[in-house]
Design a protein around this nucleic acid. Structure first.
Lengths: 230, 230
DNA sequence: CTGGTGACCGGATCATTGATCCAGTGCTCG
DNA sequence: CGAGCACTGGATCAATGATCCGGTCACCAG
């Protein structure tokens, strides 16, 4: 057996397992966890599999991380680093927010497993930095309470909900189920006439334009809610 | 040991375990599952615990249900029965939709565990009936594609996102964590000035008004998106 | 050089859980 | 009365999160 780990000195001193095999740090664990999640989804992340990919024993992970949930929280925050924060603050606030929210959505969709994790408190530095930008931009646009909180929450909730639903149907569900669902709707078209005719699963949705439309509505509402003078 | 189950004839024939103890059906399993979820949360639902509450062995459940996920799917759809579908269709569509979405949100918040399950396809009859009403009402209001899909998705996603976030912070997270999070924000107020001053966890949020505001924005947008003639 | 100190690693092991095997048990219908 | 069917559950398996405890190795004081 002796697994894959080479028990040979030559291979360890300057090369080691894999390529360089950094000595295993929390960052490396999170990095590999994201890769594993991307490849196989949230359901297949186990500490053992993660450890195996890292070339170590599963026990070792617990020295760097307290629980599996820690890994998930760290992975979730890690992918938010991909969400670009608009630089030039001189542009109008709508463009800035649209860019932020768009990137937010794109990242969530690129890592479909993240949708399943949104039900946990997001307090990592990357998430907080994006929220900070959102609040700051809204403040700069002249949005004040109670519209400020409503706007920030509304936008966040909208992206989260959209990504959750789209990820559910596009990535988590096998095409067969999706097709069966559509047929089920058509078969019961007396009970669900509107759904059978226009519903999702039946119509070939264009998620992007739908998302953009809703976002525009929200932004319009936020814009109109500001003090009339602005 | 002989547990709690009374091995006495008198208690079984016309009374049985618990009160009436219907002979265990899929409905009764789901009913008890909802109760268990309500009391202890999604994380503590196991087939064994559920079986114990039903006074049976865990194995028996698998005769009525194929997997644990089935139980979750059934439970999720079951609570949607609580969402009232507006009757009198003569009122304006905004009132109808507001009522539906409001009830939807109320139900999700009354069963916080449901938020964690929103990432799975919802195809149960109760959910479909509510979606049907949503589509039908929008159609009746003169909303046409592509605004129709955008409106239906936007509204759904908004409720789902809102409920998910609120349930996360209000029910799933211990107050201590919430408080610590607020302090963490204030401690790093240089990095997160806007969040520390106006953010959630700092300001004492009023979830309801925030939700209503965002919903109004969406409805305004939908209303304006209809053909100008209407 | 040596002995120890502390960061880091992992095999063995435990408890929990979803799921299945198979031997019942009792009721109904022929 | 006996055969079959709906239904039940104890024993059991495999996977998993987590922990115990004994190792390994670099480094540093004496």
């Amino acid at each position: 057996m002796e697994k894959g780990k080479a028990e040979n000195v030559w291979l360890r001193s300057s090369g080691g397992v894999g390529r360089d095999a950094p000595p295993l740090s929390r960052d490396r664990i999170v990095e590999e966890a994201v890769a594993l999640l991307d490849e196989e989804g949230a359901g297949r992340l186990t500490m053992r599999r993660l450890a195996e990919r890292l070339g170590t024993g599963s026990t070792t992970l617990y020295w760097h991380v307290k629980t599996k949930d820690d890994v998930l929280d760290l992975a979730l925050d890690a992918i938010f680093a991909e969400v670009e924060i608009p630089r030039d603050r001189e542009r109008d606030w709508r463009a800035d927010i649209t860019a932020l929210i768009g990137g937010w959505r794109a990242t969530l969709l690129e890592h479909p497993w993240s949708a399943a994790l949104l039900g946990r408190p997001m307090l990592g530095p990357n998430v907080l930095a994006r929220s900070e930008f959102l609040y700051a931009t809204l403040l700069g646009a002249g949005v004040v309470e109670p519209h400020l909180t409503a706007a920030a929450y509304g936008l966040s909730n909208y992206v989260i909900g959209s990504a959750l639903m789209q990820a559910t149907w596009l990535n988590s569900v096998e095409p067969a189920v999706r097709q069966a669902a559509g047929e089920h709707l058509r078969a019961n078209r007396e009970r669900y006439p509107a759904l059978a005719a226009h519903g999702p699963l039946v119509v070939d949705d264009d998620w992007d334009t739908g998302f953009t439309l809703g976002l525009t509505w929200l932004l319009d509402g936020i814009q109109a809610s500001r003090a009339p003078s602005t």
